[in-house]
Design a protein around this nucleic acid. Structure first.
Lengths: 175, 175
DNA sequence: GGTAAGATACCGACCAGCCGGTTGGTTTGG
DNA sequence: CCAAACCAACCGGCTGGTCGGTATCTTACC
């Protein structure tokens, strides 16, 4: 049917952003990265915006799936969300890059991310006796995520794992 | 001497990013915004990169100045940093926009931001008996900042001020 | 099984507009 | 009179997107 599917194109786009920065995320570059002509690429994604949208959706889906895996393994809402965020940070492809590219291109593309965050917030608010503290733990993890995107927080840094463990401990105390 | 100074140009650039998004931060747009021709703009900032750099530096300087004001008024390191971050979030110009524009254009421009964050981290690490918890409070504030940039966290939201107060309380318990 | 017809995947040349930066000149302040 | 501030036209390269065509696959009918 198709030698290259949309998922492969999205991966190629992430690769381009990682290698060359968000500003160089160009249709030609993506096409080259996945061995396609620009025409071929446009056949799959009719506009650049639709490609960016797909990048964001793929990344969000990965994060949600990750959280659900932890939840299925017995973690509570907060712990599984925290672990999902950490996992997201460790393989630094995907969402961070897509986020940057999208926010640069058109902030309106962030709508799905917004929805996702709000949904998560709702889940947590209704599950803990001290919802504000629970929110703060999530926010701290997202702060680490920001540090990662900006290149300030390295996942090999011993501080990173200490903060990570500490956050999980604090979340365990909350139940 | 000059009818338009560099600070005014930086403000105009922030305005452009706010109104049209980082991708539309173009020399022509900035020139138009501050009533200058492109040639005139280039006379002040010889390249776009140097303008971006100035934007970042101005924003960082604002934040540092804000933190120092709080410190001078008697707040300890953590509280003054937290308050500075909150202040940064409330008038949503400046750093968030500059950050986005810079990271999109060339991640290397983030170096000063990186230095600033690392310096802040050092200050805090050496000032509290439980440095990790102190770091987590800062990270939570930065997480809120990220939420603001993505348009998820509104500063009028009652949740916002509750989280803010809670963070300050937690920091007070730490001394 | 073969094949005609239609759809889907893909190519690569091309275009129009944008954008960073140059240049050569004019105005303005001291 | 000089230097700094500023202007406006211009340029070359890039980029998103178009277009007309080819190759490959599916379907259906004989």
């Amino acid at each position: 049917m198709s030698r290259v599917d949309k998922a492969a194109i999205v991966r190629a786009a992430e690769e381009v952003v990682r290698e060359k920065g968000a500003r160089k995320l160009t249709l030609d570059a993506v096409a080259a990265q996945c061995g396609l002509s620009k025409g071929g690429l446009i056949h799959h994604f009719r506009t650049k915006q639709s490609l960016l949208k797909a990048m964001l959706e793929a990344a969000i889906a990965r994060e949600d799936a990750s959280a659900e895996t932890f939840a299925a393994a017995g973690d509570d809402v907060l712990a599984s969300r925290l672990k999902a965020i950490f996992e997201l940070m460790e393989d630094d492809e995907g969402l961070p890059r897509a986020l940057i590219a999208a926010v640069a291109e058109d902030p309106a593309l962030l709508e799905p991310v917004k929805c996702n965050v709000i949904e998560m917030r709702g889940e947590i608010d209704s599950s803990y006796g001290d919802p504000e503290l629970a929110q703060l733990l999530i926010l701290a993890a997202q702060g680490m995520f920001l540090g990662r995107v900006l290149g300030v927080m390295e996942s090999e840094d011993p501080m990173f794992s200490r903060l990570r463990e500490r956050l999980l401990m604090l979340s365990a105390e909350l139940t």
